[in-house]
Amino acid sequence: MSANLEHIQQVMAEADILFTAEEVQAAVEQVAEQINQRLCNSNPVVFCVMNGGLVFSGNLLAKLTFPLEQSYLHASRYRNQTSGGELFWKAKPEISFMDREVLIIDDILDEGHTLSAIIEFCKHAGASKVHTAVLVDKLHDRKASADLKADFVGLHCEDRYIFGYGMDYKGYWRNSAAIYAVKGM
Rank of each mutant, 00 (worst) to 15 (best):
Leu68Thr: 05
Leu60Cys: 12
Phe47Tyr: 02
Lys63Trp: 13
Leu64Gln: 05
Pro67Asn: 11
Gln34His: 15
Leu64Trp: 04
Thr65Glu: 15
Arg38Asp: 14
Asn51Ser: 07
Asn59His: 12
Ile35Pro: 03
Pro67Tyr: 14
Pro44Tyr: 01
Ala75Cys: 11
Glu33Lys: 11
Pro44Gln: 01
Leu73Val: 01
Gln70Phe: 07
Leu54Asp: 00
His74Ser: 10
Phe66Lys: 12
Gly53Ala: 15
Glu69Leu: 11
Asn41Tyr: 03
Leu54Ser: 02
Val55Asn: 00
Asn36Thr: 06
Phe56Gln: 06
Gln70Gly: 04
Lys63Thr: 08
Asn59Met: 10
Met50Tyr: 08
Pro44Gly: 00
Gln37Pro: 05
Asn36Val: 03
Cys48Asn: 09
Ser57Ile: 06
Leu39Tyr: 03
Leu39Ser: 01
Thr65Arg: 13
Leu39Gly: 00
His74Glu: 08
Gln37Ile: 15
Arg77Met: 09
Ser42Gln: 15
Met50Cys: 09
Glu69Asn: 08
His74Phe: 05
Ala62Leu: 14
Thr65Pro: 10
Ser76Gln: 14
Leu60Met: 12
Pro67Trp: 11
Leu64Lys: 05
Asn36Arg: 08
Asn51Cys: 04
Leu64Val: 03
Gly52Lys: 02
Asn43Asp: 12
Glu33Tyr: 06
Leu73Ser: 01
Leu60Lys: 04
Gly52Asp: 09
Gln34Pro: 09
Asn41Cys: 08
Asn43Glu: 06
Gly52Pro: 04
Tyr72Val: 15
Lys63Val: 11
Arg77Cys: 05
Val45Ile: 12
Lys63Ile: 07
Leu73Gly: 03
Ala32Val: 00
Ser71Asn: 14
Gly53Asp: 12
Gln70Met: 13
Gly53Gln: 09
Asn51Met: 03
Gln37Asp: 14
Leu39Asp: 03
Asn36Pro: 04
Lys63Asp: 11
Glu33Met: 13
Leu61Gln: 12
Leu54Met: 09
Ser76Gly: 12
Cys40Ser: 08
Val55Glu: 00
Thr65Val: 10
Gly53Ser: 15
Thr65Ala: 11
Ser71Ala: 15
Arg38Met: 12
Ala62Cys: 13
Leu68Trp: 02
Gly52Val: 02
Pro44Arg: 04
Ser76Thr: 13
Gln37Cys: 14
Ala75Asn: 13
Val46Pro: 01
Cys40Gly: 07
Ala62Asp: 06
Val45Phe: 02
Val46Asp: 00
Pro44Lys: 01
Pro67Val: 12
Ala62Gly: 06
Gln37Ala: 15
Phe56Arg: 05
Leu68Pro: 01
Asn36Gly: 05
Leu54Thr: 01
Leu64Asp: 03
His74Trp: 06
Ser76Arg: 15
Ala75Phe: 07
Leu60Trp: 07
Val46Thr: 03
Cys48Ser: 15
Arg77Tyr: 05
Gly53Trp: 06
Val45Ser: 03
Asn59Ala: 12
Leu39Pro: 02
His74Thr: 03
Ser76Met: 14
Glu33Phe: 09
